[in-house]
Design a protein around this nucleic acid. Sequence first.
DNA 1: GCTCCAAATCGACGCTCATCAATCTACTTT
DNA 2: AAAGTAGATTGATGAGCGTCGATTTGGAGC
Lengths: 117, 117
Amino acid sequence: MSVDLELSPKTKRAPGEPCCEPVVYPDVQREQATRMAQVAKALGDPVRLQLVDVLRKHAGKVCVCELVPLFDIAQPTVSHHLKVLREAGIVGSERQGLWAYYFVIPDALNELAAWLG
Amino acid sequence: MSVDLELSPKTKRAPGEPCCEPVVYPDVQREQATRMAQVAKALGDPVRLQLVDVLRKHAGKVCVCELVPLFDIAQPTVSHHLKVLREAGIVGSERQGLWAYYFVIPDALNELAAWLG
DNA sequence: GCTCCAAATCGACGCTCATCAATCTACTTT
DNA sequence: AAAGTAGATTGATGAGCGTCGATTTGGAGC
């Protein structure tokens, strides 16, 4: 009986030993991954993605009253989606009298975009 | 009483009339938005994002047994996340004997990456 | 004052998600 | 054939999500 365990490419190894030596590790650490996943999650709904698309193409602020009729969903639902985007740091809002205006926050998508390559 | 409605920038308008003329429209249509949101949603979890990160950096196939010990979650959970990524078209898998190897599908993230700019 | 309006919030509904322990499947080794 | 192993599947649980109708909030106009 030899002492060297001879971790062969098949299954010969000490019991409880992992089947492979882990040789891969994520370059993106948990904290960064959590941050990017949060942004990705916020974009993970067709309505929110289209909302961001409209706001991005428009560079300036856009009134909510223009956003609501673009979708076949009720006004509170649009409000909810805008809140999700705001809490993810993707958009900002500003009130002027009765109206509320939304806009994309510059560079908010940069980290994710850079990672996607 | 004048007949012209005079849609002023404030609230003077005919009842039932929208507050603003909708002048913005999404460039990204619903179908494309749904497709991209599906990918974004799959990336909207820190574990899945790190899984993709590992697989992307590795260009080749990676054994599941190397992926499991990278996270503090049970093996069935890793399996579940890999399944989600596979169903989103982001990764592919291949079995060789006892082991399963996963790899990123080239160009799977291109559409979303291009949109993010 | 009161009324009207845009937008946000609330409360509830069904559905989906992340997670785990237990089990199952398919393969390898003895 | 029997035992062992990697990975997938199942079933359950608790949390979260998308949606809506109803209500509330805070201005604007009469």
